[in-house]
Design a protein around this nucleic acid. Structure first.
Lengths: 207, 207
DNA sequence: TCGATTTGTGAACACCGTTCACTAACTTTG
DNA sequence: CAAAGTTAGTGAACGGTGTTCACAAATCGA
């Protein structure tokens, strides 16, 4: 029964094609400008066809989000070559911020937009948002390693990881959502870098 | 010429009525469910009438945002009664988070939604987003006071203020955008509190 | 070859933000 | 007081949105 397999393959190929087209449109034009109709047009199918592969727009966004987390995880992997725990943690933060600046649309999808999380809710899983959890676990792991090495003194690795996540996420989110317009354009980037440096410094010596 | 004054008064009254209705609808139903048509219906006018008072939806959101910053500033004022700089800073963070949890829609308006910032851009002011800047300046002020008192050791109050802002904002934003679903519901709040405590602790002694 | 199943679609539904010609009411002027 | 001018307010439309569904076409298994 090679036919069924071929059909299966063709189906996932089309699904992949939809995601690829959507991805391309989103980072060419941003989320607000792209509609289901646009995506359909890009793959030369009718809008209704997309609904044969995704129950709704949120599910499509969710699928793209999962892909994106693959990329972020990959970026995270490289930090484990760094020896010193403090430097390693610093690198995790740097990767997070670099990802936000290099792929702002993916970052929005992963950490800001409501759409994909509505799909997560709709699924009603017992352990929801596995891709997000997996990425966070990497940060927890780095914290735990630092604690085991006696470099970080804190009670709980997960709590500390949440704190670090919040710090870098806050910076990225405020920037991407244009809340840093209060700073003159030329100072903006250095100010952000300084803020991160300061955070890294106080992690070691306090303020 | 009392007539002109009356007209003026009526006009601002109607503007105020629109804002009040929009405010009410937004925090009853959330931003995604409320349209210009809904708002018009609530004040018993035609949708087109709203455009006599606001050039577009973004300007309406911007007006609400400014009102909201009034509330946040008021919340910030109360921290200046606290003597010790570290405790005072802690209180600022607490007020920010409390505001986010008590008025999630206002928080979105102020710090997450794109709409109001598009209005800010459209205005093209030399010193944009004055209401945001004013709120941030309060944080800078608290940092500066701590530096002057010799309690905080850092080069630049503005940089430090941005770091603190990012920390609390990140936590609030991740929560409101449902990114903390990776934690079991009953642990969520305590985890956030612990993360904040940890941040406050490392500000003093390092990690 | 014929019936069954899959694949794809056009047209519609109920919304959205926004614009504009037009009416109706009010104010000012002669 | 009447006529002219000004303003407030609106109905209807435009071009979009996500989504559904009866229907057509193509492919498949018997």
């Amino acid at each position: 029964m090679g036919i069924i397999e071929r059909k299966e393959r063709e189906k996932t190929e089309r699904r992949q094609a939809i995601l690829a087209a959507a991805q391309r449109l989103f980072n060419e034009q941003g989320f607000e400008k792209v509609s289901m109709r646009n995506i359909a047009e890009a793959i030369e199918y009718s809008p209704a066809t997309i609904y044969l592969h995704f129950t709704d727009k949120n599910e499509l966004l969710f699928a793209l989000q999962n892909q994106a987390f693959g990329q972020l995880r990959q970026a995270f992997e490289s930090v484990f070559t760094i020896e010193h725990p403090a430097e390693r943690l610093q690198a995790v933060g740097h990767k997070y911020l670099a990802f936000a600046f290099e792929h702002p649309e993916l970052f929005e999808l992963m950490f800001i937009l409501n759409g994909p999380m509505e799909a997560v809710e709709a699924r009603g899983e017992a352990a929801p948002w596995a891709s997000g959890r997996a990425a966070f676990d990497r940060v927890v792991q780095v914290m735990q390693q630092g604690m085991d090495a006696g470099v970080f003194q804190c009670a709980d690795a997960e709590t500390a990881a949440l704190m670090v996540w919040s710090q870098v996420h806050g910076l990225a989110a405020l920037f991407l959502r244009k809340r840093l317009v209060i700073f003159p354009e030329e100072r903006r980037q250095t100010l952000m870098e300084e803020a991160m440096k300061l955070f890294n410094r106080i992690l070691q010596h306090g303020l």
